[in-house]
Amino acid sequence: MAYTNISGEKMVRVDMISEDLLASMTSAEKIRMILDGVIEGKILVLERGLMPEEEAKLIEATMVEISPEFVGIEIESYPAKERRSLMDRLFGRTKSQARLTVIGSPNQLKTIKKDRGLITALISEV
């Protein structure tokens, strides 16, 4: 599903979800929000990634929805080694959540390139 602007041009909607909003949500709420968003055709950018257990639950919930119409999700996040920030080191934390995670439909997110500190999402024409 695509969005159109006033002139009738097709557009992709990208929702940025802040760390604060994510922190206020339960795992079940986050997973529902992500899946509903992707099903609606949105691309979601999470400021803080999910916990490993949440990632597994998200994959499970995605698989429940798989059908000829809904083929699943594409997720990309930062490498683990880049995830250990200065704060993590200061506080002696070994595991922290990914900094930025991009989620969308596999058809829309054709390629996501990851480079040091930068994620480039190549969004296919809608």
Binding site: M51, P52, E53, E55, A56, I59, I75, E76, S77, P79, A80, K95, K114
Partner: peptide, 15 residues
């Protein structure tokens, strides 16, 4: 190797 599936399995084993 850097795919979500691999990251998720590793994260869950670490957790």
């Amino acid at each position: 190797p850097y795919t979500q599936v691999n990251i998720t399995v590793i994260g869950n084993m670490e957790a």
